[in-house]
Amino acid sequence: MSTPDPGPEPSASGDALTAAAITELVESVLAYDLPPIVVAGHPVLRRPAEEVRGRLDDELLGRLVATMRRVMHAAPGVGLAAPQIGIPLRIAVLEDRGVLDETVAAARSRTPLPFTAIIDPRYTAIGDPMDSFYEGCLSVPGYQAVVERHHAVEATWTRPDGTRTTEVFEGWPARIVQHETDHLDGRLYLDRAHLRSLSADREHARWVQPTVEEARRGLGF
């Protein structure tokens, strides 16, 4: 089967795409059965994504969200932002079934997060508590690093049906919201990471603990 034409890329100057160009770009990405995930070094990951604000019709938006969910599951991951498949729009999908280890779940406040599609999201921190845990990213394969994030956030976004929604997230779900919203702002998790904690996947097994305290001692961060 021939490779689909990747279509127009976002303007290198950062100029906003027209509605027609956005539609063409999304259609070109959806021509793939599973669109590839772009990796660090691609400029789409380093520019703030554009607001959707109704610039995609309901049918195309629905297909995009469904495709993003399939890509997230196939990776596998617990979140995926549209820029990660080359689309510079403020859309992300989130879903986490949690972990079976009750000790890990309690230490990380890792509660299940049902599938959620967030469009044009914004969040604000709730209080001062911060949590530090290892994170990875589908666009930075092969590595993980410790990132300090707000324990709780209040997020506001638009659902695919057009409903504007506000919800409070705590613990690991709040971490996922912050990670994916960072993608929409042109940031990678490494921008916030303790770089001395950076671990290749083949080394990370030694630091797989409920908390990061052993990694702090071993790596000096």
Rank of each mutant, 00 (worst) to 15 (best):
159 R>P: 01
41 G>P: 15
101 D>M: 05
212 V>L: 00
111 T>A: 13
119 I>G: 03
144 Q>L: 02
48 P>T: 12
105 A>Y: 06
38 V>H: 06
134 Y>V: 09
50 E>H: 14
160 P>N: 02
188 L>G: 10
13 S>N: 11
197 S>Y: 02
146 V>Q: 03
15 D>N: 05
141 P>R: 05
154 E>Y: 00
129 P>V: 02
187 R>Y: 13
210 P>E: 10
126 I>S: 02
24 E>N: 05
83 P>M: 07
7 G>N: 11
166 T>M: 05
157 W>M: 07
109 S>Y: 07
119 I>M: 06
167 E>N: 04
205 A>L: 09
15 D>V: 09
68 M>V: 03
187 R>F: 13
197 S>I: 08
32 Y>R: 08
79 G>I: 08
36 P>R: 05
220 G>L: 08
117 A>L: 08
8 P>M: 08
196 R>W: 04
96 D>G: 12
104 V>M: 11
198 L>A: 08
21 A>H: 02
197 S>H: 03
76 P>C: 10
32 Y>G: 00
37 I>M: 10
78 V>E: 01
189 Y>H: 11
53 R>A: 15
214 E>D: 09
116 T>V: 12
38 V>E: 13
120 D>A: 12
7 G>S: 08
51 E>R: 14
143 Y>T: 12
107 A>R: 02
190 L>R: 09
140 V>E: 13
22 I>H: 00
138 L>Y: 00
78 V>Y: 05
80 L>I: 15
26 V>T: 06
189 Y>L: 11
131 D>T: 12
100 L>Q: 13
58 D>L: 06
109 S>R: 10
95 E>S: 09
200 A>D: 06
62 G>Y: 00
119 I>V: 15
23 T>F: 02
176 I>F: 00
209 Q>W: 10
172 W>L: 10
57 D>V: 10
73 H>K: 14
187 R>Q: 01
135 E>F: 08
14 G>L: 05
95 E>D: 13
116 T>P: 01
98 G>R: 11
48 P>V: 12
161 D>G: 10
88 P>R: 02
70 R>S: 07
124 T>Y: 04
181 T>E: 05
29 V>L: 02
12 A>I: 07
40 A>Q: 12
131 D>F: 00
178 Q>C: 10
124 T>F: 00
187 R>H: 14
89 L>Q: 03
150 H>N: 10
193 A>T: 00
21 A>K: 12
42 H>Q: 14
1 M>W: 10
61 L>Q: 04
152 A>G: 06
87 I>L: 03
35 P>Y: 06
221 F>I: 02
128 D>Q: 08
114 P>I: 11
134 Y>R: 04
178 Q>E: 12
31 A>G: 12
151 H>C: 07
156 T>G: 01
202 R>G: 02
77 G>I: 07
178 Q>I: 15
99 V>K: 04
57 D>K: 06
62 G>T: 13
95 E>H: 12
158 T>E: 07
63 R>S: 09
163 T>Q: 15
206 R>H: 08
101 D>K: 04
34 L>I: 09
156 T>N: 00
33 D>Q: 11
121 P>G: 07
35 P>A: 15
216 R>L: 04
189 Y>D: 01
183 H>I: 03
23 T>G: 03
148 E>Q: 13
132 S>E: 15
70 R>Q: 14
38 V>C: 13
